[in-house]
Amino acid sequence: MDSFTDNALMLKVKSGDLDKLGHLFKRYGRSLYGFYFRFTRDPELSEDLVQDVFERVLKYRHTYRGDGKFITWLYHLARNVLVDYHKRAARLGIREDIGKKEEALPDTAALGEATEKEADLKLMELALDHLSEEKKELLLLTKFQGLKYKDIATIYNCSEANVKVKVFRAVQDLREAFRKIQAKGISI
């Protein structure tokens, strides 16, 4: 089944061969989980959001045309799931607290012999939490999920140049947030 392209598998799902959805889940479930986990730091919620994405793949399979990359279509759905989650959370009065995320990060003793690189990664994750949702999402899609600017432009319905500018600004803001956190001397 690995010989089938993503588009071919999704076209089979669209035509009613729902067993093929499992293959797409195997290919992209972990990637989507990582995307959501970097946003939420909540394993159960991340799993739920991944399930929501694949429920939408099934529900909206009739809208898939197959003329673009499947991964672009998938992350468009994933983005919508995240937006809907935030709207629902705001409506229910659920608020994400950055302080809680800071407390959830292990202290120096818990890390034991963690390398400086691992500590910097934890600081980077904390710095990501200080960015706007759009900037955080752009960085996760480009730097962690490996999507191309062209694909993100399709997801955002804007030009590739616009995405490049937004990513550049997001990187600048991330760098500044990282420096501020380092300056505070937060123990990771």
Rank of each mutant, 00 (worst) to 15 (best):
Leu121Tyr: 09
Glu137Trp: 05
Ser46His: 05
Asp84Lys: 05
Thr63Ala: 11
Ile71Thr: 13
Glu133Tyr: 06
Leu49Cys: 02
Arg56Ser: 09
His76Gln: 12
Val57Leu: 12
Glu137Gly: 05
Arg41Ser: 06
Val81Phe: 01
Thr72Met: 11
Gly68Ser: 13
Gly66Ile: 00
Glu103Cys: 02
Ala119Glu: 13
His76Asp: 07
Leu74Asn: 01
Glu125Cys: 07
Asn80Glu: 10
Glu116Gln: 13
Val53Gly: 00
Leu82Ile: 07
Leu131Met: 04
Ser46Gly: 02
Lys87Asn: 15
Gly68Gln: 03
Glu102Trp: 11
Ala110Met: 14
Glu134Gly: 03
Leu82Phe: 11
Leu139Gln: 08
Glu47Phe: 05
Leu77Ile: 15
Arg56Ala: 07
Leu74Gln: 03
Lys59His: 11
Tyr75Gly: 07
Tyr36Lys: 00
Leu82Glu: 09
Thr108Met: 13
His76Ser: 14
Thr72Asn: 10
Ala119Cys: 13
Ala127Asn: 08
Leu139Ile: 12
Ala119Ile: 15
Asp67Pro: 02
His76Cys: 14
Lys135Leu: 03
Ala110Gly: 10
Arg88Asp: 13
Phe35Glu: 01
Asp97Ser: 14
His62Asn: 09
Leu82His: 09
Phe37Met: 03
Ser132Gly: 11
Val53Glu: 00
Ala78Leu: 06
Leu141Asp: 04
Ile94Pro: 08
Val81Met: 10
Glu116Val: 14
Ala127Ser: 08
Asp52Lys: 12
Lys59Thr: 09
Leu105Tyr: 02
Asp129Ile: 03
Gly112Asn: 09
Glu96Ser: 08
Gly34Ile: 02
Met124Glu: 08
Arg79Met: 12
Glu96Tyr: 07
Ala78Tyr: 12
Pro43Trp: 01
Leu131Ile: 08
Ala90Tyr: 03
Leu58Phe: 08
Tyr60Asn: 11
Thr63Ser: 08
Arg41Gln: 08
Tyr75Gln: 06
Thr115Cys: 10
Glu118Asp: 13
Asp52Met: 01
Glu55Leu: 15
Leu74Phe: 02
Glu102Gly: 08
His86Asp: 06
Val83Arg: 02
Thr115Pro: 05
Trp73Thr: 07
Ile94Phe: 15
Ile71Tyr: 03
Arg61Lys: 15
Asp120Gln: 14
His86Arg: 14
Ala110Asp: 09
Glu116Ala: 13
Tyr75Phe: 15
Gln51Trp: 00
His86Asn: 10
Lys69Ile: 03
Asp129Val: 04
Lys135Val: 03
Glu134Asp: 11
Met124Cys: 07
Asp48Arg: 04
Lys136Val: 02
Leu92Gln: 10
Phe54Asp: 01
Glu118Pro: 04
Leu77Ser: 07
Gly66Tyr: 04
Val50Glu: 05
Leu111Tyr: 07
Val83Ile: 15
Leu138Asp: 06
Arg38Glu: 10
Ala119Val: 15
Leu82Gln: 11
Glu137Pro: 12
Thr72Ala: 13
Lys59Cys: 04
Asp42Trp: 04
Leu77Met: 11
Lys117Ala: 15
Glu116Thr: 14
Lys135Ile: 02
